[in-house]
Design a protein around this nucleic acid. Structure first.
Lengths: 169, 169
DNA sequence: TGGCTGAGTATCTATAAGTAAACTCAAACT
DNA sequence: AGTTTGAGTTTACTTATAGATACTCAGCCA
């Protein structure tokens, strides 16, 4: 009897099909970063952009959407505002990444890596990521707590503390 | 002189702002998995669903969009169709993940991990991922080719073979 | 006082997604 | 021959999101 069968205890429900999917961490993350432009804004922040005009120029995205996305990212604590001042100009806001924002790097590196493998130009990728200290190429890997490298096929999902079934309405 | 300055050779352009972003692997991956429902369909495939009706039931998504997303995922080689046959029924198609699809696992694990950390229920996550062989919890990490664990701040981006600037129009 | 600049707002249109229900289609079963 | 079933397609309508463009606003400078 596996962990799923155990938690259901003969309710006749199917853990795959009658699960409550509203508390899924993937879906909740997508609520934030799944909107158009959001990840691309973060990409530009990682590449060093910080001003409203920078994002507009490099992304070519509509100003109203840019403003809305920046506001949301600040509200969510992924970006924070600081001020900068060019000589001869007044102070203006700029956007910097927070630790919470940096924690999105593995997810975005995963997207980058997949794109590099399957959708890159014939010549190769446009940008390479390397370890600042040793210069070696970096990639994302799945590892277990004991330090083993884990293949995607060797991941097993088990119900967590907030697992619940959909209530029959 | 860094790698960016070198590649620009005094053109007066800014590698951050005048870059050609059309060949970005992140953006190209998002063209596929950034559409609504796509990642959620893949999540259900990983949890064991394979039939049209399964996806419809667990996701509650519109049938026309589900059909469109499944078709796209098959065209892209992320899913493949096979047939199944219930006793007393005719053969029907089902959807299985391909190796190309499995390679999206690290990216999606990254989203899961971030959601578990910042957007989980007070009790904790709904689903836990563990290593089938040893039972230990798994997570995604950034590593360099030499095997060092790399912090997000220690990643350096350098121009790759397909790097180019936006042509001034 | 009037123009300039960066960072937004406001408004309008176009496209995509959500919702709901009817319709198709092929084989299996009655 | 008629019914059932899973896997779709099609149509019609509503709402949400994206995109384009014009406008505002605050401070600096001439």
């Amino acid at each position: 009897m596996d962990a799923w069968t155990e938690v259901l205890q003969d309710t006749g429900m199917d853990h795959r099909l009658d699960r409550d999917t509203s508390n899924c961490s993937i879906a909740r993350t997508l609520e934030i970063v799944g909107e158009k432009w959001t990840i691309l804004i973060l990409r530009e922040v990682w590449y060093g952009s910080s001003r409203f005009g920078d994002f507009e120029r490099v992304l070519g995205c509509p100003r109203n959407l840019l403003a809305a996305r920046l506001r949301m990212l600040v509200e969510e604590g992924i970006l924070a505002t600081e001020t900068y001042k060019e000589p001869g100009s007044r102070s203006r806001p700029k956007y910097v990444i927070t630790p919470k924002g940096m924690d999105l790097v593995p997810a975005v590196m995963g997207l980058l890596q997949w794109g590099d493998r399957y959708r890159a130009d014939p010549e190769g990728p446009a940008v390479l990521a390397r370890h600042r200290e040793c210069g070696a190429h970096v990639d994302v890997q799945i590892r277990c707590e004991r330090g083993h490298a884990v293949q995607a096929e060797d991941i097993e999902s088990v119900p967590g503390p907030a697992f619940r079934m959909r209530s029959p309405e």
